[in-house]
Design a protein around this nucleic acid. Structure first.
Lengths: 339, 339
DNA sequence: GTGAAAGCGCTAACAT
DNA sequence: ATGTTAGCGCTTTCAC
């Protein structure tokens, strides 16, 4: 601590104990639930703590106790509302249970992800949540030997280090292929963002092509636009796509709802009818897609639930319980009106 | 990982020191920058640390050193992409500087905010960022005496506890009033979400009415919808509003872009021309508004920059520098095409 | 440039 | 039900 002269240092447990006329450890017990403490002792200690404005020092507590009540969370991005939703689910549940989040953002960069995890582990978190961004082998290895519960989220297609909470993006892609085929579409195209960094988008596309292949159908066109997904990218991408691939019974599967909404706007501004001239499907089930004049055909991804389940899984593991390694939160097709 | 039986305890600094044949303190110095350490000693220690897979324990480091390198962040919501943007700015800058975020979400509940801050302070963060949700007096008082740098963000209209980074929402509201008046609109209405919990939205509305009053104009109608802002709320609200307040030269100032986008969708589905029948303005400058077939008339709020400036301000204060108490990041009118 | 001693504020083990 | 002792793993003095 700096020696701030006039500034009386924060009260410590020792001072609370003295004020209450008990030993440090008794004060400690009293302030944590009060098991094995006499009723009036408990009250005296709490009263003293309140009077002194005592704020426990959990750095010291965690160091002495060997457990930290912080949970590290590493996400690839915050620009995408998808991860904000997951984060919300995580925060809600963990806060309820008296844990706090330390947050890192990898920007879909595996190297950065690796560094970030190493950094966050220095705080000796009680658990770690990771939405992987093509994690390096080193990262996986480190986490496997780090001796803390790890929840990998979003995706359950890949083998998990420890716990896995999410949905099968591959399955979601296939489901949409089947649905569009069922609706009678035979001219199918794919429009995506810079997919090389986003493993989930890759999985959906593969699932989609698999689903088509099962019916002997192939993509008529596929366009990958550079950069992260966005509505603008969707509009511009659609314009380019339709250049080599005229509308009229064409169905475009977009890498996610943002892109699909952009595609919808493009159709709107060009006077193309949806789904007549151009059918559209996305992924995520974002509110914006459902609020369009025509609700978007898409797949709901239950992001907040993923966060909640991941939190619950970690908490259970912290309590020493055995937890099923894979938690599939599923997905739901929203039929919408754009395909 | 599950119970690794042969689980040798994590290496400590002492072990690294021993392996390198130096004292603990020398190892400590070597691993932090290496000031006052001989060149080859430094290399030996780093090499030993690498070999042992040493992960420093910052709980211990912070406890001993009296400073934590964690920064607490309390936001009212994550559902709104606005705060995700701010968070991103914060994370980027703080991570760069070797700090980490502990996150709490208040849900616009002052009581919860109060509890959350108390909780987060137990980790002895080096600083705190707060996007206030009608903070209680107790909260303000505690922060004022907590002896750590505090950055209140979003809003600079109210007196700051310590640092204040954001823009004048009141000013933004006024600016929009002046702009709409300048465009010739005389029939003005307001459409908002449940504003009682969102102090910034309140300030914008007041500024808007002030701006109108300066020209002797009054609101023709104001409608507050229950619940948090959303596109759907915007659509439904517009439908209701137009019931008692027919279109035709009417301009609606929406509490934010989400609501305005909803209003736009409503107009679209009703065949109302924008801005002819119905002019629309929002606040935030979200990407979705600018990606509409007609870009939204709105005010850009520079959220990421707010996060970055808040981080920079805190970092400066941590270095002991004096910092100007109010940092106005300003705003920018986006004229758009909906008004 | 390096080290010895002392302690940060708390809790886990053992007492009693 | 309460207290004593001994650390947790690191960094801050202050020596040399």
């Amino acid at each position: 601590m700096q020696t701030s002269e006039a500034h009386e240092t924060r009260p410590t447990l020792a001072q609370v104990a003295r004020a209450a006329g008990v030993s440090e450890i008794t004060a400690s017990r009293a302030l944590r639930g009060g098991a094995r403490v006499a009723r009036d002792t408990l009250e005296r200690v709490q009263e003293a703590a309140r009077r002194l404005n005592y704020v426990p020092n959990r750095l010291a507590g965690a160091l002495a106790g060997g457990q930290s009540r912080q949970v590290a969370v590493v996400l690839p991005s915050l620009s995408n509302s998808v991860f904000a939703d997951v984060l919300k689910g995580l925060e809600t549940r963990l806060e309820q249970a008296g844990h706090h989040l330390i947050l890192g953002v990898s920007n879909y960069d595996p190297q950065r992800e690796e560094r970030l995890i190493a950094e966050l582990l220095t705080w000796r978190p009680a658990g770690l949540v990771l939405a992987p961004a093509n994690s390096t082998e080193l990262t996986r290895q480190r986490l496997a030997t780090a001796d803390l519960p790890v929840a990998e989220i979003m995706d359950i297609d890949r083998p998990a280090i420890d716990l896995s909470v999410g949905l099968s993006h591959r399955g979601a892609g296939r489901a949409m292929a089947h649905y569009l085929l069922g609706r009678g579409y035979r001219r199918l195209a794919y429009l995506g963002h810079d997919i090389t960094t986003d493993p989930r988008a890759v999985a959906r596309r593969q699932g989609f092509e698999d689903g088509l292949a099962e019916a002997g159908v192939a993509l008529e066109a596929a366009l990958l636009m550079p950069g992260p997904s966005s509505v603008t990218l969707g509009s511009q991408g659609t314009a380019r796509l339709l250049g080599g691939c005229p509308p009229g019974g064409l169905a475009v599967y977009c890498s996610n709802d943002d892109v699909a909404v952009g595609a919808f706007f493009h159709a709107l501004s060009q006077g193309l009818s949806v789904p007549g001239d151009l059918a559209l499907a996305g992924f995520n089930g974002l509110a914006i897609g459902q609020a369009l004049p025509q609700p978007l055909t898409t797949i709901e991804s239950r992001r907040e639930r993923i966060g909640e389940h991941a939190a619950a899984g970690l908490l259970a593991r912290m309590r020493g319980e055995t937890v099923q390694p894979v938690d599939d939160v599923g997905f739901r097709l929203i039929t919408g009106a754009t395909a």
